[in-house]
Amino acid sequence: MKMDETSTRKTDRKAVVPLLVGLAVAGLLSSCGGEPETQEAPVQQIAYEGLPLGPDELPPGPGREAVLNACLLCHSPAYLTMQPPFPRAVWEGVVQKMVQTYGAQVRPYDRKLVVDYLMSIRGVPAKKSEVKKDT
């Protein structure tokens, strides 16, 4: 058994995403039946504090604000920045999938902004993408 003092100290830090953590913890408690603790129990740890959730790795550009609002509730910006360049039709398909099947809350006008931004950071210029568009 090993004490991890570093982690203990970190519990006092303020949560960056209390909503997400709250959901995760609530899910945990409800699935455990909410039974009272009989042993001395440590405080629930918050895992996400201080993570680079943020916008730092998204370069500036038109539509960036829309991306922050639309995408980052569920996943880190790295999901976007790790992608190779794709034609506009592919990015439109991705945004549609996020809205329709994953329940992303994006206003119709913002969808275009999100796609514009994705094209600006990971887009294949229209000329090249013409070839694939027919597919």
């Binding site: 058994m1 991890d4 570093t6 982690s7 970190k10 519990t11 830090r13 042993q39 129990a41 440590p42 740890q45 895992a47 996400y48 504090e49 201080g50 993570l51 680079p52």
Partner: peptide
Amino acid sequence: QAPGVTRRVLLGSLAALL
């Protein structure tokens, strides 16, 4: 820890480790 001994495990602060 050996199986059966663990009572509680913590992911801890990802930030510090990152």
